[in-house]
């Protein structure tokens, strides 16, 4: 068995592992391409909200013209597609079906596999997202815009960071699967504030002031509204946005690690 010594070999090992995990998960995702089309279609909530808002409500959103609103919701749709996290559902099913045990017996934390699965799913989702955007542009040519290079770069960074933070927060909740066989129900509960406060149903500017202030103290708007505004050319506090996302991630990462260690002590390898 080859062992790894020194930072060079460790890095080489990590890069190879990442490459192999991503390619195998991508191959797996391609087996489910029809399902991924349906997932991509199921994320069109921002486009539905666009239809609702463009009727009457635009005038009441400060700083939003009808065209800006179209750009915002299209950007929110794209951001949403690349920040979807389902690790709690996958983990819960794996734990109940006894598939977690074989993964625990390997010298690799199973969450790296889940992370690779999410990234691969995003890669699989990309062409379908582009197709939906192209379709919207075909029907409504005014919906398209060219983001500035800086806006595009920041939006990309913010989207990836938002995804990672969501993954870390949901991973911390996932650890509750060690205590309850139905921990995913908690995630379903959190979906309600996520939907309303993230900016998926309306840009944060449409909220009354107390509501907006409250929302900005939660992680939710920074996961969709913040990157969507960056992408669509809106005005957002850039440094605060990245700072808040990093802070939520850094808060939940040690919680996830501690719960993981405590959870493993309770693990009874059910179903295995």
């Amino acid at each position: 068995m080859s062992r790894h010594h020194g930072p060079d070999r460790s890095l080489r090992h990590a890069v190879r592992l990442a490459r192999v995990l991503l390619s195998s998960q991508y191959a797996l995702m391609l087996e489910f391409r029809a399902e991924i089309v349906l997932w991509a279609l199921s994320g069109v909530l921002p486009l539905i909200m666009l239809g609702l808002w463009s009727g009457t409500g635009v005038a009441s959103i400060p700083g939003f013209t009808p065209q800006r609103l179209v750009h915002y919701f299209l950007a929110a749709f794209v951001v949403r597609q690349f920040t979807i996290v389902w690790v709690i559902h996958a983990f819960e099913e794996d734990a109940l079906q006894g598939r977690l045990s074989p993964a625990l017996l390997q010298p690799l934390n199973p969450f790296w596999r889940y992370l690779a699965a999410h990234v691969s799913e995003q890669a699989t989702r990309l062409p379908f997202v582009l197709a939906i955007v192209a379709l919207v542009a075909l029907v409504h040519p005014a919906a398209l815009w060219w983001p500035t290079p800086a806006g595009l770069l920041l939006a990309l960074l913010a989207t990836h960071l938002a995804f990672l933070v969501r993954f870390v927060i949901q991973s911390a909740l996932t650890m509750l699967c060690f205590w309850s066989e139905r921990a995913a129900a908690l995630e379903r509960l959190l979906l309600i504030p996520y939907l309303f406060l993230s900016g998926l149903v309306a840009p944060l500017e449409a909220f009354p002031e107390p509501m907006r202030s409250f929302a900005l103290n939660t992680p939710f708007p920074w996961m969709v509204w913040f990157p969507a505004q960056l992408l669509s050319g809106g005005t957002v506090p850039v440094a605060r946005g990245f700072g808040v996302l990093a802070a939520w991630g850094l808060l939940f990462l040690p919680i996830a690690v501690l719960l993981w260690r405590a959870g493993l002590r309770r693990y009874s390898a059910m179903g295995a």
């Binding site: 068995m1 080859s2 790894h4 190879r16 490459r19 192999v20 995990l21 195998s24 690799l108």
Partner: peptide
């Protein structure tokens, strides 16, 4: 495919 993953996990060239 699983064997490729295992080889990478266990650091087998």
């Amino acid at each position: 495919d699983s064997l490729r993953v295992n080889a990478a996990v266990y650091g087998i060239e």
